[in-house]
Design a protein around this nucleic acid. Structure first.
Lengths: 141, 141
DNA sequence: AAACACCTTCAAGTGCACTCTAAGGCAAGG
DNA sequence: CCTTGCCTTAGAGTGCACTTGAAGGTGTTT
């Protein structure tokens, strides 16, 4: 039994990308769908997995250019595994740094929300500025 | 004793934005520096704090347009506090959702790195695909 | 026969947030 | 006097990742 073939429209819905974007990614060398006798693209479950992985990489902030390099390395065979591993590690480290920064900003945001609540229910003096209020939570080295 | 006045160049270095960007933000109504007798901008510690807060908001993913709205509300007085609070809450919720998604992507990335490690030190069968390997960590509902 | 989904190439448009240039002018410091 | 740093307006350029359009073609389905 042959594997199911998805044409671009169906596949687009399946992976949540537009047909435009799928062709664009193909142009960029990120995806290599097969063609039927009429030259029409078709995708298989193999492509579903690959696009899924691409979306994970993009989701962690990887750029198209880096993704292209990754694809080139992949095509070059197992000898490039260390380099690919290093790329992923870099992306991972960057993403973790982004998260840490995001959480730092969120902390201030949360304090500001608390401060608004305090202002509204009068548990924070009308005169106390947010800046003064923030000092209370400042981590001092 | 009068408060220290920072001209745009010095202030730019202080807050980590370019003078271009500071003028741009002023155009957009986000910052309102004062002017000396010659029409030259100057900023004070008050502006340092305000820009600092702007950067926290931007750091959590808030858009300039929303920032503008926030500034307009702020200028309209304390009666807009509930609305401002709601904006911040929205930004916070969005940022937290972003973090959750990022972490989900990171998880897959980490597994891929582990898989590479397993391939290199032969603890993962040469034949085992990443997709099969991933199944082991799949959370099943 | 018409509608539909697909195909091609090439180029232009979109959105966001800057980033920089041009061109001309003012004021303080060395 | 000259350099440095600032001022103005208006507009163009940048980077990224799409997104769309034009314009013409093929094959399948109703």
């Amino acid at each position: 039994m042959a594997e199911k073939r998805y044409r671009i429209g169906e596949f687009a819905k399946l992976v949540g990308l537009s047909a435009y974007t799928l062709r664009y990614y193909e142009d960029q060398g990120l995806i290599l769908p097969q063609r039927d006798d009429n030259g029409v693209r078709f995708y298989t479950t193999h492509d579903i997995r690959w696009v899924g992985f691409i979306l994970h990489l993009k989701g962690t902030g990887m750029r198209l250019n880096d993704l292209k390099r990754y694809v080139r390395l992949r095509a070059a065979g197992d000898s490039t595994i260390p380099e690919r591993r290093a790329m992923l590690q870099q992306v991972k480290d960057d993403a973790e740094a982004d998260i840490a920064e995001l959480q730092m900003h969120l902390k201030v945001l949360s304090h500001k929300i608390d401060w608004y609540d305090g202002k509204v229910d009068q548990t924070i003096a009308d005169s106390e500025s947010f800046h003064d209020y923030l000092q209370k939570f400042q981590d001092r080295g």
